[in-house]
């Protein structure tokens, strides 16, 4: 219903912004992968491994967190103006 057909190909700047939006959508996969890395870490007491120290673990987990906060905020800022002009936030490009 009522969806105006979008042009098949876009000019360079719009194209770039669309891909930024794609990046926003895919961030969640990046986050999930990065946060699941600790599953692979050797647990304390496993023979033949050097245990990960808590400070390193903290830095890693919170580092990913900061990345996942800064990246979408940055990307969103880049695509916001474009999306406003085109209406619908992030419908299929």
């Amino acid at each position: 219903m009522g969806r105006t057909p979008l042009p098949l190909f876009l000019e360079r700047s719009s194209y770039r912004k669309r891909r930024m939006m794609d990046a926003v959508k895919l961030l969640v996969i990046l986050g999930a992968c990065l946060w699941m890395v600790p599953v692979l870490w050797p647990s304390d007491g496993q023979p033949g491994t050097v245990p990960i120290t808590m400070s390193r673990a903290l830095f890693y987990v919170f580092g990913v967190w900061v990345l996942l906060i800064v990246l979408p905020a940055f990307l969103m800022r880049k695509v916001r103006s474009d999306l406003r002009a085109e209406g619908e936030p992030g419908d299929d490009a």
Partner: peptide, 16 residues
């Protein structure tokens, strides 16, 4: 923190 009992990674992967 590193010197305490909680100083190393002890979490079970499946629980995580």
């Amino acid at each position: 923190i590193d010197a305490s009992d909680l100083g190393t990674w002890q979490t079970d992967g499946s629980r995580w």
